[in-house]
């Protein structure tokens, strides 16, 4: 008996298709994460291409971001400086639709991205060109399917992530209306980028504290939890006993009292 995970595994196999895995095999993890490298978009990019990308990014930045972050990304009253945040931060914030922010609420929400993948890459290249920072993660690095260890990832997740994101990655409350968002449906590369850049309330998880291999394990566990079918019936949101209590008072006692009313009613 292998509870559903065989099925889950095959599901993921077709999503992160074979070609990606071949590329993955060619690239070693350590070099890609070297902090000194300000290159974005993978190692196949060459100088001229890079310059145009930066130029394009600069234009998008001037139009879409500079009103808050300043014309040279030096920051403003309402938004932080982006010099040195690196391509990973841009890829995460723009790629998950958090930036540009729709309104000045407590915290930027995940939503449909405003910029497409190319525009995001251009923005990332521009910001990375300002000062070195963590590079964006490409799919080739995300070998969690092959290199990750689900159980170890769960252990790491419970020690480092569950206190905010809840035991099943459903998210949770922080102070003053901030919240840790749900991790369900988040792209693996965005999870990875969040860990290395520490967006918003989230702290940074350095590569020496949680190694790149361990990060892949965490992603593997999150993806396993995400696609884990309901082993015991409707999941009730996987938020613990609160919804269970709610259900027992409404559905449980509700049905029983309904039946009791029928039972005590005089037949006609």
């Amino acid at each position: 008996m292998n509870f559903g995970f065989k099925k889950v595994a095959s599901y993921r196999r077709h999503r992160f298709a074979a070609p990606a895995l071949i590329v993955v095999a060619l690239i070693s993890l350590g070099t890609t994460f070297s902090m000194a490298s300000a290159l974005t978009g993978g190692p196949h990019m060459v100088g001229a291409e890079q310059t145009t990308l930066v130029q394009e990014g600069k234009e998008i930045f001037a139009r879409g971001c500079s009103s808050c972050h300043g014309i040279n990304a030096e920051g403003g009253n309402i938004a932080p400086a982006l010099v040195g945040v690196g391509a990973a931060a841009v890829d995460f914030q723009v790629g998950t639709g958090r930036m540009p922010m729709a309104d000045m609420s407590q915290q930027a929400m995940r939503k449909r991205p405003v910029y497409n993948a190319e525009q995001t890459a251009a923005l990332a290249a521009y910001v990375a060109s300002l000062a070195p920072g963590p590079a964006a993660v490409n799919d080739a690095q995300l070998t969690f399917e092959r290199d990750g260890n689900t159980a170890q990832g769960g252990e790491l997740f419970r020690t480092n992530c569950a206190m905010c994101h809840n035991f099943a990655g459903q998210g949770g409350a922080l102070s003053q209306g901030k919240y840790a968002p749900t991790l369900m449906g988040v792209e693996p590369k965005h999870i990875y980028e969040a860990m290395i850049t520490g967006p918003q309330s989230m702290p940074v998880f350095s590569d020496k504290v949680i190694t790149p291999a361990e990060k892949l394990s965490i992603i593997k566990w999150i993806k396993a939890a995400e696609s884990e079918p309901n082993l015991g019936g409707a999941s009730l949101g996987r938020v613990g006993p609160v919804t269970e209590g709610l259900l027992v008072w409404t559905l449980g006692l509700g049905i029983l009292i309904g039946i009791a009313v029928w039972l005590a009613m005089k037949a006609r």
């Binding site: 769960g154 569950a162 994101h165 998210g171 939890a225 996987r238 613990g240």
Partner: peptide, 23 residues
């Protein structure tokens, strides 16, 4: 029909870990 106390998701107890929304 309804899952209750999915202990396999909570993980084994150790004093150094905690989940958001512990009730």
């Amino acid at each position: 029909v309804a899952s209750i106390n999915p202990i396999w998701l909570y993980g084994p107890y150790t004093p150094g870990q905690i989940s958001a929304g512990s009730q």
